[in-house]
Design a binder for these strands. Structure first.
Lengths: 385, 385
DNA sequence: TTGTCATGGAGAAACGTATCTTCAGCCCCG
DNA sequence: CGGGGCTGAAGATACGTTTCTCCATGACAA
């Protein structure tokens, strides 16, 4: 039972193509055990620097690359993070449809790579065949559905899940969202101060968190101020429906003298509709829409936009997720509490913990009747969710 | 990390270890061997349907999910495909900067998922720590650098690589690209027919394939037709430099009466510059630019654009890659030949095999002095590369 | 009876790594 | 002189699959 006898029968088959060098090959070439190789390469164990560097050199010479699969199997960590966008239409991804998603995904990818993780793009559909085929350390879910079965299963099976957008009824490890309520109230106040008497809303028919929270904030504001709500809803994922809804809103008998549009294309659509009805902006119609696009800096007139700061969200979501992954080694969740910034955090002990982030209102000519200067709203203090 | 924070009852039921059920547990529960379980679940082996369905039912009841890591280790297949975009600035990704990348990536993701693969986004930098940490069945490289060390190493280590954009000096399994030369010649002919006497070019300073091929085609055309080249080059990744270059081009003493811009923002930049110089489009200046954005259908006037059909490219690239992954089991490349369509394929036996795809010219008012009607150019027959 | 198949299924060997445990020396102190 | 602690490194096991090999059984023909 010598070591030589043990190692002799490694590859009796004819090696016509050259196999990738494994850790055994490195060990043999360096004249040490595989334990020593592993320790030397991973900076563990007790080894003199001389042995360490020698092993490293041999590994380099042999072009040794550790097998990611084997390492994942052994350590239980893959370094992979799932990224999911809820699908609207037939296409599984809405990346480019809304600039918000694209920017958010880009930031998330960067943040993950910066911490040594890679992002895997996965469909929100709960097709097991796809999901169970990839070992995930955690998952980012953008805009989760109200009762997402996929998220529930992931969470139940112990995979950390962090969502962009406050989740409805599915449990998540943590979530991050913009302070949509504060943002809408801020905009309504802003329009009021600019002289608006009746503010209309262009909103969506879907039930996602963003649409719901924003609409509710609008309705609450109207109720508080004593204005009759004036709004039109349309399916946000339909590119053509937005223009129709904008037209409808301005055709109403109780036509508003200011409009906030919840979705990116609303700005141009409203502008076009206003032109059709001969309404001058901002003299006769004040305009604000939510958008990440800078085309609104160049429209005639430039349009005030609300930015959801997708990059900040994406970075935060990923960092939260990786913190959860690396902080929780056993099955039970621990230590997540310290990861959240002191402000903008839900106080209660009840899960899941969430973080609200401030938005940014970029004021342009379309919402000001005086001097159109670009300015930035200060972040609002955190309110209750 | 106080004990209180630690004890904050997160998941009360997880006090005992709720280990994921393994294949052994399923085998024990079903009263069969793990071999039978594996065969039953994977549709292999010789088993009566009764056993098969019973095992499947037990597995379902136990919530059994095979370990992706173990399967990958055993089979050598991960179901993961890398997606890389060459980085321009500090940001690792240019996804949103150019709509082409975003659309292409989206199509590639869809195509991969449709065939059971998932895409993992990776940086083009050759940081081993990231790349070697994930088991890849193959890689898509968008716009590879002229002598990409990363691509070379991947290819050498046997990982199939398919590139979007004809590679310069690095070996790839296959590549797909638009027929840039044909596209440019087509545009120049189109502008000539519309009455252009001196056609200018707005191009980039970088050395990627797209820029190089397009510029060369332009220079060759000028030489053939006997026109003095009139062009300005600028760093394409600099968002501000484009407007300056457009201005410079129209400020030249030998001002062109038609311009083709190679990059997406050139259309609006050229339009703005033309306005500054009081040039009417298309009466005094014909305009075409390469873009995937549909904003050019709504500009004043609408601008003729060249579409690179990113979705078609993305789908083709991924299908080619997966064909290579599944068709080539040994190290040496085989069988790839049959995968390529008979047309648009390089004839020679020498690797790497490439596919040229036709582009689409969407003709709008900016490049026509007569009746501005939208039409589509027929695909050109394949020429030599 | 004996051999040949076909059927249904079990055993065990990988896959390549990380890590827990053990062990041989060696020095030093009592 | 004996043992405790430290250093350097090897052995062995486990991770959870897939799959190759092989065996038991019974039916059927020779």
């Amino acid at each position: 039972m010598t070591a030589a006898a043990n190692q002799s029968g490694r590859r009796p088959t004819t090696s016509r193509r050259l196999e990738r060098a494994g850790i055994r090959d490195v060990a043999a070439a360096a004249g040490v055990s595989i334990t020593t190789v592993s320790d030397a390469l991973n900076g563990k164990g007790r080894l003199p620097d001389e042995t360490r560097s020698r092993v490293r050199e041999v590994a380099e010479r042999l072009g040794y690359r550790p097998s990611a699969a084997a390492r994942t199997l052994r350590t239980g960590r893959s370094g992979l993070i799932g990224l999911t966008v809820t699908t609207y239409g037939e296409e599984p991804f809405t990346f480019t449809e809304f600039a918000y998603f694209a920017e958010m995904a880009r930031a998330a990818t960067s943040a993950a790579l910066g911490r040594g993780y890679a992002l895997v793009v996965l469909p929100a559909s709960s097709r097991h065949d796809v999901w169970s085929n990839v070992a995930l350390d955690g998952t980012v879910v953008i805009d989760p559905a109200d009762q997402d079965p996929l998220v529930s299963e992931l969470y139940r099976s112990g995979v950390p899940v962090v969502s962009d957008g406050k989740p409805g009824n599915c449990p998540v490890t943590a979530w991050v969202d913009n302070d949509h309520e504060a943002a809408v109230l801020n905009i309504l106040d802003h329009l009021s101060e600019a002289g608006a008497r009746r503010i209309g809303l262009l909103t969506g028919t879907s039930t996602d968190t963003y649409t719901r929270l924003s609409t509710d904030a609008y309705l609450g504001w109207c109720d508080r101020v004593g204005q009759e709500p004036v709004y039109e809803a349309y399916p946000a994922h339909d590119p053509a429906a937005g223009a129709v809804a904008a037209d409808r809103l301005l055709a109403r008998p109780d036509r508003p003298d200011a409009v906030y549009g919840l979705f990116d294309p609303n700005g141009t659509d409203l502008l076009a509709a206003a032109r059709r009805y001969g309404l001058r902006v901002p003299e006769e119609l004040l305009l604000v829409c939510c958008s990440e696009s800078d085309v609104y800096a160049g429209t005639e007139p430039p349009i005030t936009t609300l930015s959801l700061k997708p990059r900040r969200i994406g970075t935060t979501v990923v960092n939260l997720l990786i913190d959860a992954i690396e902080g929780v080694d056993s099955g039970t969740g621990v230590d997540i509490a310290r990861l959240f910034p002191p402000r903008y955090r839900t106080a209660g002990t009840g899960p899941p913990p969430g973080t609200l982030m401030p938005t940014e209102l970029i004021v342009r000519a379309s919402s000001q009747r005086r001097s159109p200067r670009t300015t930035v709203s200060p972040p609002r203090p955190p309110g209750e969710v």
